[in-house]
Design a protein around this nucleic acid. Structure first.
Length: 829
RNA sequence: GGGCGGGUGGUGGAACGGUAGACACGCGGGUCUUAGAAGCCCGUGCCGCAAGGUGUGAGGGUUCGAUUCCCUCCCCGCCCACCA
């Protein structure tokens, strides 16, 4: 054993040995644990956020292996997507070449940190053998009616020259490029995720090991709303407007109906006089909406359409307006306005001089009058001036109104969701080609002909970057004749391929299942493997994926179940969302602030073990942490102390297991180490990595001052302690620990051995410090035997020198006794 | 506007309703050294020489006892948002 701790001398050695011995491979038997971290987009370099993300998974994977589980811990590359293509446009290099280099560099960095991945299962989404299965899923889902083509208003990013999902728009700007998003009408492909909204919502209840903030975001995102649909016939036209409302009890207070400016029935509502006005209004609103920034509540504006709607109960005619506060793709795109009981409607009515009528009275207090109302009264109450429904509570009224509507055939109760379908076509090159062909002869309506399964994969053509990746104009693939021109699978005549590619969220929606059979050529997922290995036991990633990826892959799991590929309803049992690693200044690491800390620099300076230990010690996994060079140095010093301890005590390295009959310090050493082992084990089970490390520090601090002993029992106790430290620390600082364990006689890697069990007798305390309080204030402390009874402890406490003065001359009213904790004297005065 | 987190020393953070501040950083002192670095040892919430007092964003409540539970409020972060 060397005297000096030199991470550079030991780390590469162990990294090599682990891979050689195949220690991180799945064995195929025993109880399984599937630990997965969100796979990265392989940008050039790993940053600290990555390091932490994979470390949380790695510590668990390493711990689970020693606990005897059959652990799957794979890694792959989310390699398709916008960044690679944008980079390609910028420097005119083919995305495939860049990706290959980036993957190599990223992987080398991962290896240098000592992550315990099974690299034989590595996958890469830009590999045709991966994305062919995206195409396979597309075709299967099309058969199931879960894929469709729609004309839709899409978010168009002028910078990326592509359609982006609602979820990818932030503050009216493209999440990636920051360009102002404009509204454009285009055909696009969509997945019918809304067919599963209800199920996705219901099953959130099963996600008991997900952070509540994530499940609550998903609930919000799905946005189930229960209410009623109410049909308003249009006066003098063969048309009817259906509105959605959660307040059917306010139906008798309707003073107008509002539709979205681009409502599908608009042409039937307008007349010769209003048509132009409405059209101009709609165009104007669209322009304003595109320029809209966050936190700016737009002025409510509207225009009368010229039509009147007939109230389903009173037969009264109310005007139909078009207004900017109604969105076309939520509910039915039309609402009934009840100004007295909805603030938005109230403001609009005031502005345009529309009637306001109170139909809900508060349960208690003064009655409301329609005249001079200062604001809408949105609380539930009692129905008023509402025909036969007058006097009903809001809640009962809603039920009765719905029932009556249903009877009349003019609506009824209804449920609506905020969640939209997932538009997934992208006008991009670096994505999965959509396996569709357009043939003028067989498919004159351009619905798209599915490429037959046996013709998959439709591979991305190798392109002339300069010609194709210009970043503007028609989709890149449309510029590649040898790709776009093909033959129709039906008639064999000339046809054109779909030029659009898939959203990369498709890739990440099922990759967790591909790791189970990464080379399977028959199916995307081997159902037998899936049955054994799913769900993922622990999934680690950033909370920023709460509503996109984490919802899409739940959806995909339901589809895979339907296809008989998997047998679980949910992909992930426990979700861990890790906090951000900020710069030393507490700000987000970025070039802008010049506070970026590079993992490879840190590994080069302090070694992987010190970097790993710091990242885990800095705080609990889900919390943001600030990078701190001083703290890393502290961790490095700590590892040095561990090394020095092992070195100083090296004479005991040949000792075997303690044989009992402890002499000298042996018992104290054994008690300390077993107690530490107990607590570290508990901490690891509950993901308390920072406190687990602290426990080992305590033990090391306790052992460091002890000089090497000649006493046989003490030597054995010390050898045991060092070996236990190596085990306890091995998930965090695996290289150092392997080295020490080997020096202390281990012939196998720690990853091939079993996590030691602590001796409960040794771990137990044998004396207890009682806190003694008088009226809840700490006045003294006493040492008692663990088995000391209540009476004995109380008597001791009362006589204690520090306590007695506070009790002198006072009547003890009560004595609270908490076993092994404290005694509290409650005295008068 | 709605939802969800969070607020503890100079700093990162610990604390099943039971001794607040484990562990670490920083700082101060000591030891070793010709000197330094690295070790090692001691101290370190705040006020106070001390006795003692005080202290977990603010205020109230429950309790023998509250960082922890309840109510009101303030601040910070994240997510959603003319959603009918």
């Amino acid at each position: 054993m060397q005297e000096r701790y030199d991470p550079k001398a030991i780390e590469p050695k162990w990294q090599q040995r682990w891979q050689q011995e195949g220690l991180f491979k799945l064995k195929g038997n025993g109880e399984k644990r599937y630990v997965l971290e969100m796979f990265p987009y392989p940008s050039g370099k790993m940053h600290m956020g990555h390091v932490r993300n994979y470390l949380i998974g790695d510590v668990l994977a390493r711990y689970f292996r020693t606990k005897g589980y059959d652990v799957l811990h794979p890694m792959g590359w989310d390699a398709l997507g916008l960044p690679a293509e944008n980079a390609a446009i910028k420097d005119q290099r083919h995305p495939a070449d860049r990706t290959r280099e980036n993957v190599a560099q990223f992987k080398a960095e991962m290896l240098s940190v000592g992550y315990s991945y099974d690299w034989e299962r590595e996958i890469n989404t830009s590999d045709p053998e991966y994305y062919r299965w995206n195409q396979w899923f597309f075709l299967k889902m099309r058969e199931l009616g879960l894929v469709y083509r729609r004309m839709s208003r899409v978010n168009w990013c002028p910078g990326c020259a592509t359609v982006i999902a609602n979820e990818q728009v932030k503050d009216g700007a493209c999440e990636r490029s920051g360009d102002q998003v404009v509204v454009k009408r285009m055909p696009e492909w969509a997945f019918k995720i809304t067919a599963y909204s209800e199920q996705l919502l219901q099953q959130i209840d099963q996600l008991t090991e997900w952070p509540e903030r994530i499940t609550s975001m998903q609930r919000n995102w799905i946005g189930k709303s229960e209410g009623a649909e109410i049909v308003f016939k249009i006066d003098g036209a063969d048309a009817a407007l259906t509105v959605f409302t959660t307040r059917a009890d306010t139906l008798f207070g309707v003073s107008y109906v509002v539709v979205a400016p681009d409502h599908s029935l608009m042409s039937k509502l307008v007349n010769a006089k209003t048509a132009e006005q409405v059209k101009a209004f709609a165009a104007d609103q669209e322009k304003k909406a595109a320029a809209q920034k966050k936190d700016e509540e737009p002025e409510k504006e509207g225009v009368f359409t010229g039509a009147y709607a007939i109230h389903p109960f009173t037969g009264q005619k109310v005007p139909v307006w078009a207004a900017n506060f109604v969105v076309s793709d939520y509910g039915t795109g039309a609402v009934m306005s009840v100004p007295a009981h909805d603030q938005r409607d109230f403001e609009f009515a005031k502005k345009y001089g529309l009637p306001i009528k109170v139909v809900i009275q508060p349960k208690e207090g003064d009655k409301l009058a329609s005249q001079g109302l200062a604001a809408a009264s949105t609380e539930d109450g009692v129905m008023f001036d509402s025909g036969d429904f007058t006097g009903l509570s809001s809640e009962e009224g809603r039920r009765k109104v719905c029932a009556a509507l249903k009877q009349k055939g003019l609506g009824g109760s209804a449920v609506t969701f905020r969640q939209r379908d997932w538009g997934f076509s992208r006008q991009r090159y670096w994505g999965t080609p959509i396996p569709i062909v357009y043939c003028e002869k067989c498919d004159p309506n351009h619905e798209g002909i599915s490429v037959p399964l046996e013709q998959l994969p439709v591979t991305l053509p190798r392109i002339d970057v300069a010609k194709v990746l210009t970043g503007r104009g028609e989709p890149p693939l449309a510029k590649v004749p040898e790709f776009i021109n093909t033959t129709c699978p039906k008639c064999g005549g000339p046809a054109r391929r779909e030029a659009e590619t898939m959203d990369t969220f498709v890739d990440s929606s099922w990759y967790f299942a591909r790791f189970l059979s990464p080379k399977d050529a028959k199916l995307p997922v081997d159902p037998a493997e899936a049955k054994r290995m799913l769900p993922v036991d622990v999934y680690v990633g950033g909370p920023e994926h709460a509503v996109m990826h984490l919802l899409y892959f739940r959806f995909w799991t339901l589809v895979m179940k339907q296809l008989g590929l998997v047998s679980v309803d949910e992909p992930v049992k426990k979700l861990v969302t890790q906090g951000i690693v900020n710069g030393p200044d507490g700000r987000k690491m970025s070039k802008r602030w010049g506070n970026v800390v590079s993992p490879s620099d840190i590994v080069a300076r302090f070694g992987a073990d010190a970097a790993r230990t710091f990242v885990m010690f800095a705080g609990p996994p889900e919390k943001d942490i600030d990078w701190s060079d001083e703290q890393v140095e502290g961790c490095s010093r700590f590892l040095g102390r561990v090394w020095r301890l092992a070195y100083a005590q090296r004479d005991c390295a040949s000792e075997g297991v303690p044989a009992g009959g402890e002499t000298g310090n042996a018992l104290a050493i054994r008690k300390a180490s077993h107690k530490a082992l107990m607590r570290v084990t508990e901490d690891l089970e509950r993901l308390g990595f920072n406190t687990a490390i602290a426990r080992v520090m305590e033990l090391v601090n306790f052992l460091t001052p002890m000089a090497p002993s000649a006493d046989k029992a003490e030597k054995a106790a010390m050898a045991e302690a060092v070996r236990l430290i190596a085990f306890m620390l091995s998930p965090f600082a695996p290289h150092l620990c392997e080295e020490i364990a080997a020096d202390y006689g281990a012939t196998q890697s720690l990853q091939a051995r079993s996590w030691p069990a602590f001796d409960p007798v040794l771990a137990a305390e044998d004396s207890v410090t009682y806190a003694v309080q008088v009226n809840g204030k700490l006045r003294g402390q006493i040492q008692c035997a663990v088995e000391a009874g209540e009476a004995e402890v109380k008597a001791m406490a009362e006589k204690d020198g520090a306590v007695a003065p506070h009790l002198a001359g006072k009547a003890i009213k009560r004595v609270v006794f908490v076993p092994k904790r404290l005694v509290n004297f409650v005295v008068a005065g």
